[in-house]
Simulated assay, not measured.
Amino acid sequence: MNAPRAIDFDSAHALPVFDDAARLQFSEFYPETPHVLKHGLASHPLLELGSLASLAERIPESSIEYNRGDLPVGIDGKPGSTGLSIGETIRAIHRANSWAVLKNIEQDERYRSLLLSLLDEIRPQIEAKTGAMLRPQGFIFISSPNAVTPYHFDPEHNILLQITGSKIMTQFPAGDPQFAPDEVHETYHSGGARELSWNDELMQGACECPIGPGEAVFVPVMAPHFVKVGPESSISLSITWRSDWSFAEADARAFNRILRKAGFRPARPGRWPAGNHPKAYAYRALRKVGLVG
């Protein structure tokens, strides 16, 4: 199976959210280096609590995740709930002791237009390095004061825009087995969980990125990270995309799992600009003939 085709971005938008300086900075550091950017989306009607509660109440339950906010950086398994509904949680987020994420907001036409307009602003910088922008997705995080998103990684290129409140995004080097072992990568790309094991010694390799309203942080593909919210409730918008590189890295990891189960000790995929195509093509060939899921 081939990676998805590029999306045609023709959506119109008003004033730029990322100015010339932000786009230049992003171009310099994309796709491998975490950095903080300025943005002009500090307020938007679709990102107010009432609008977000309404969105949460009309999208599928499978697109919603929410739980207690008073969590440690490292957890085993999924955290517990607060007993509130998602609408109640969002409307009372300042006192709900919760963390919530609305996934794939692009399934709602108004939020899809917002997402695509933002990605369209930085598409030239993205495609100059990693090729066609693929599979655009958006996620909105609504968090109570001092809430924690535990240590994990994600398969997308990601820019997290802070709308209200503040956060500290703590990132670690992507692809380094000290922070996420190769076996964990391989299991994840074969259907496993994204949560990672934590120990305090890992902080020696941390890159802390504090952000407030009007600021955003870039997160490279599969860079381990955790997030701590500041003393006020927080709303953040995550705009994400995939690339041929990210799909090849994922398929190379999945092929390595097959090799490891067969008794080999495969070399981990290279980070960008390494292509990882031989293993990716091998895994895709096995998937095409039905030998892997």
Rank of each mutant, 00 (worst) to 15 (best):
R58W: 02
G40Q: 05
D76K: 10
A280E: 03
G192C: 05
R91A: 05
D200Y: 14
S11G: 06
T187D: 06
T164L: 06
K78E: 07
M169C: 05
R265W: 07
P210V: 04
S54F: 05
A267K: 10
G175V: 07
A128W: 09
I258D: 13
L116R: 06
E61D: 05
A128Q: 09
A3W: 02
Q125Y: 04
R260I: 05
V148T: 12
F179L: 15
W272V: 08
V36M: 09
A285V: 04
H13Q: 05
K103V: 01
S54L: 04
Y188V: 15
H39L: 07
S143N: 14
G131R: 15
I140A: 15
K38M: 10
D154C: 11
P145L: 10
G230Y: 09
A223N: 04
L160G: 12
L196G: 01
F139H: 11
S85T: 08
N97K: 15
R123K: 13
R265E: 06
T149S: 07
S197C: 13
I64M: 03
S143T: 15
G275W: 10
Y281K: 15
L102H: 00
R260G: 09
H185D: 13
G192N: 11
P136W: 00
I93E: 00
L102V: 00
L24A: 11
G165N: 13
L161E: 10
S27T: 03
G293C: 14
N104H: 03
R91C: 09
E65P: 01
P79I: 09
E88T: 07
A280L: 03
F264R: 06
M169Y: 05
G138H: 09
F218N: 05
S234Q: 07
E61P: 02
G212V: 12
A216H: 10
P266Q: 06
H152M: 12
